[in-house]
Amino acid sequence: MANKTILKWAGSKVRIMNQLRPHLPKTKRLVEPFAGSCAVMMNTDYEQYLVADVNHDLINLYHIAQALPAPFIPNAEYYFQTFNQGKSYYDIRSKFNTTKKHMTSEGIAVNFLYLNRHCYNGLCRYSEKTGFNVPFGNYKKPYFPKEEIIAFAVKSQDAYIACLEWQDTLSLVDYSDGIYCDPPYMGDNFTRYSSSDFTDSDNEALAFALKDINDMQGNPITVSNSLEAKELYADLGFTIHEIEAPRTISAKGNRKPAKEIIAVLNGGAQ
C-alpha cells in the first residue's frame, strides 16, 4: 500500500506507484524538478533526493514540514477544527492572497495546507490578479494529515528541497543522478499552478532539455505525461509505456481511468 502525502493533489502519483516504480531510474539520488505532492519521494528509497518546484507556497510548506517547528501541527490542526464552513474558507483564502507578504513562513504554510485540504479536489491553481482561486470543496470533515506531516519530516532529512524553475533544477543534475519529471500535462486545462502558466511549448522545451542531458551526461530519465505527449517523447527516442491512471478531476462527472504515458530514457556512461 502506497504512503499518502501531506497534500491532496490533482495528478498525484500515489495511486499509480506500482506502475511507475519499475520505470524510475536506478540511481543513488533522484532529481525531481516538479515536486507536486512528493508522492514519489514518499514512496521510494533513494539514498538522496533533490526536490524542487517553482511554486513558492508549496516549497515553503515542505520547508516547514521538514524542519517541523513545535507549533506547526497544533496551529494547523486548530484551523481544521475551527474553520470548516464556506465563509471561513473564502475569508482565509482572501487573507492568504492579500496579506501573505506580512505572514511568517509558518503562517503561510498553515494557510496553504488548510486551503489545499478544504478546496475543490486538491487543485492548486492561481489567477494572476487574485492569487489562489480554487473554490471551496464543501467536504464534511477534511482530513488533517498529522501522520503524513511527521512521516515527511523524517523522510525529507535525506532531501534537498528548493524553490526553482525546472531549468535551474536541471542545471544541478550530477552525472550519477536519475531524473523524474511530472510536469503539468500537455493538453491539460489546469496549468497555472504557480504565478505563470506551463504551456505545451514549455512541455516541448522540457522534453528537448531532458534529451540533451541524457546525450551529454548519460543520466537516466523518466517522465510522466498525457497521451498528447506520446509522439513528442517517442520522436526523441524515449521508450513509451502506456498506463491507465485514476482521473481525479473531470468535466461532466466522468472519472473513468485515463490513459497516460511513462516515457523512459536509459542511462549510459559518458
Rank of each mutant, 00 (worst) to 15 (best):
A2L: 05
T5K: 02
L7Y: 05
L7E: 11
K8G: 07
G11R: 04
K13R: 11
K13S: 09
K13M: 06
R15W: 08
I16P: 06
I16K: 05
M17N: 03
R21N: 14
R21G: 05
H23M: 13
E32L: 08
P33M: 07
V40Y: 10
M41W: 04
M42Q: 11
V51T: 11
D57K: 02
N60H: 00
L61P: 06
A65C: 13
A67C: 02
A70C: 03
P71G: 03
F72L: 02
I73K: 00
P74C: 02
T82A: 13
T82S: 15
G86S: 15
K87T: 12
S88I: 00
Y89V: 06
K95T: 12
K95S: 14
F96C: 05
F96S: 07
N97D: 13
K100N: 11
K101N: 15
H102C: 01
H102F: 08
T104L: 00
L115C: 06
N116C: 02
N116K: 01
H118E: 10
H118S: 09
Y120H: 15
N121A: 15
L123I: 10
L123F: 08
K129A: 15
T130L: 10
G131I: 08
G131P: 13
K140Q: 15
P142F: 04
Y143Q: 10
F144K: 09
K146I: 04
E147V: 00
E148I: 02
I149R: 02
I149Y: 00
F152Y: 14
V154N: 15
K155F: 10
S156M: 03
Q157K: 15
Y160S: 14
C163T: 08
C163W: 01
L172N: 09
G178V: 00
Y180T: 07
D182V: 01
P183E: 12
Y185W: 13
M186S: 14
G187V: 04
F190L: 15
F190Q: 15
T191N: 11
R192L: 09
S194E: 11
S196M: 11
D197L: 03
D197W: 05
F198H: 04
D200Y: 02
S201R: 10
S201Y: 13
D202L: 03
D202A: 06
N203S: 15
L206Q: 05
A207W: 05
A207D: 12
A209M: 10
I213A: 11
N219Q: 12
P220F: 03
S224P: 08
Y233M: 11
F238V: 03
I240W: 06
H241W: 05
H241V: 13
A245S: 13
T248C: 04
G253E: 11
G253I: 01
K259H: 12
A263D: 11
L265N: 05
G268D: 14
G268W: 01
